[in-house]
Design a protein around this nucleic acid. Structure first.
Length: 193
DNA sequence: CGGCAGATACGCT
DNA sequence: GCGTATCTGCCGT
């Protein structure tokens, strides 16, 4: 397959814009077992003036990465056992990012299967904690620059706006009415939600 | 297949 | 203490 080789240039704008434009982009993850390529199919936007965002109450040790430069990975730990990852947006000094909720396996699906106890393909990466488990993303990856190995973000062909569905974000209680969740219409790897 | 409880640890009140 | 940007297994329809 052929993908672009530069990080998407729209990350410095609002996370709501970035969340839509990240759909169709790729993560290329190098693991000891080999290379994994996935396509982003579901996202959610979070920003500083957003009561649902980890950055809402200001910078802390945990959320420091969200206030750093765009294009880095913010990884958090939640529910006592799960990791989830965001692409940092909106530039240094602003606490914003895009939660990656689901991805579609493109290459290295056998590696993803192994990391997910050989579960059926459709549930390998259709959730924010599932995809982190499948791609071996944990707190040690927090702050990682997505221009660099072992995990890069590259632009994909833009998803037509008619193919993007917006809806409420999942699993939050504050500012829940905002339609800041985006996914590719009819894609089988979108989370059940 | 939909609903629900349990797991489990960390950050914030 | 309490709530959490979740997932899984187990139950009943």
């Amino acid at each position: 397959m052929s993908v672009g080789d530069s990080i998407p240039g729209f990350l410095d704008g609002s996370s709501v814009d970035a969340a839509q434009r990240l759909l169709g982009c790729y993560f290329i993850r190098d693991l000891p077992q080999g290379q994994v390529v996935v396509k982003i199919v579901e996202t959610e936007a979070y920003h500083q003036d957003d009561a649902a965002s980890h950055s809402y109450r200001g910078e802390t040790t945990r959320t420091k990465t969200m206030f750093g430069p765009s294009g880095h990975l913010y990884v958090y730990f939640t529910y006592g056992m799960h990791y989830c990852c965001n692409v940092v947006t909106s530039g240094a000094g602003i606490g914003a990012g895009v939660l990656i909720r689901a991805v579609e396996p493109i290459e290295g699906i056998d590696i993803l299967r192994r990391n997910r106890a050989n579960k059926p393909d459709v549930v390998l990466t259709n959730g924010p904690a599932k995809l982190c488990q499948a791609m071996l993303i944990d707190r040690s990856m927090d702050g990682h620059d997505l221009l660099a190995e072992p995990m890069r973000l590259v632009a994909g062909p833009p998803v037509p706006s008619g193919q993007i569905v917006a809806g409420r974000r999942i699993g939050i209680s504050r500012d829940a009415h905002r339609d800041w969740r985006f996914y590719i219409k009819d894609n089988p790897y979108v989370s059940a939600g």
